[in-house]
Simulated scan of single mutants.
Amino acid sequence: MKVAVLDITGKDTGRKVELSSDVFEIEPNNHAIYLDVKQHLANKRQGTHKSKERAEISGSTRKIKKQKGTGTARAGSIKSGVFRGGGRMFGPRPRDYSFKLNKNLKRLARKSALSTQAKENNLVVVEDFEFDTPKTKNFVNVLKALGLENKKSLFVLSGSNNNVYLSSRNLERTKVVSGSDLSTYGILNAGKVVFMESSLETIESNFSK
């Protein structure tokens, strides 16, 4: 598929780039997408949740009533979870939620996400650009020129471009990543995915393996 190349003012340069059919035109694998997004969200969880169990509660250890003859259940400790102020039964404990996925599956998921966005005409290719200094206003002007100021957007760079990244950091709906940091969640969470022209070669070489 061919996509027109725009400049940072939003005008057509008259050139078109050919997107690899192996990356942008495959049949999306929904289960691969599900697993990769699930892993991404799981890896972001801190897992530091903790509640006190009966052994960790401060309180009297005396037997609170006699064993028999009360007509109610036996009770041996005020720290039991059945009493107010007692420990929590089967409460959360600190744990690691991350899990492993094979590289081939993750690659398939990202190609599926890119193909999904391509089918919906949500891909934009822009000429490479840089800023002399980090300035949010410069990046906002680019967004306005591309008609993305009120949309979620993901900008994909070919490599590190510190001034462009710092200029976008304060913008809530925009994220800037390098081609090697693309994630399935990031691709699908964006209304438009904007590629710098030079980033396409890196992405196609990484995902065509």
Results as ranks from 00 to 15, higher is better:
19 L>E: 08
35 L>M: 12
75 A>H: 05
114 L>C: 03
108 L>R: 11
67 Q>L: 12
59 G>W: 04
69 G>C: 08
103 K>Q: 14
120 E>S: 11
95 R>K: 13
14 G>D: 06
46 Q>F: 03
98 S>C: 02
12 D>M: 09
112 S>I: 09
16 K>S: 15
82 V>Q: 12
110 R>I: 09
71 G>H: 02
121 N>C: 04
89 M>A: 14
113 A>E: 13
112 S>E: 11
56 E>D: 14
66 K>W: 06
59 G>P: 11
51 S>K: 15
106 K>L: 02
79 K>C: 13
38 K>V: 10
63 K>F: 00
93 R>S: 12
84 R>T: 13
101 L>W: 03
27 E>H: 02
59 G>R: 10
18 E>N: 12
109 A>T: 05
39 Q>S: 04
15 R>N: 13
52 K>R: 14
48 T>R: 12
20 S>K: 08
55 A>W: 06
93 R>I: 12
47 G>K: 07
20 S>Q: 01
79 K>E: 10
105 L>A: 11
117 Q>K: 14
97 Y>N: 09
21 S>V: 09
54 R>S: 10
122 N>Q: 15
93 R>A: 11
62 R>L: 06
21 S>N: 04
88 R>W: 05
89 M>C: 01
37 V>R: 05
64 I>H: 10
45 R>L: 12
117 Q>V: 09
69 G>S: 08
71 G>D: 02
91 G>N: 13
49 H>P: 01
72 T>Q: 15
12 D>H: 13
90 F>G: 01
89 M>V: 07
49 H>K: 15
31 H>W: 07
24 F>S: 03
77 S>K: 07
101 L>F: 02
109 A>Y: 07
104 N>T: 07
67 Q>G: 01
109 A>K: 00
121 N>E: 04
114 L>H: 01
66 K>M: 14
119 K>Y: 03
16 K>F: 11
71 G>V: 00
94 P>G: 06
66 K>G: 12
114 L>S: 05
91 G>H: 14
56 E>S: 07
29 N>C: 09
101 L>V: 00
68 K>S: 03
27 E>V: 09
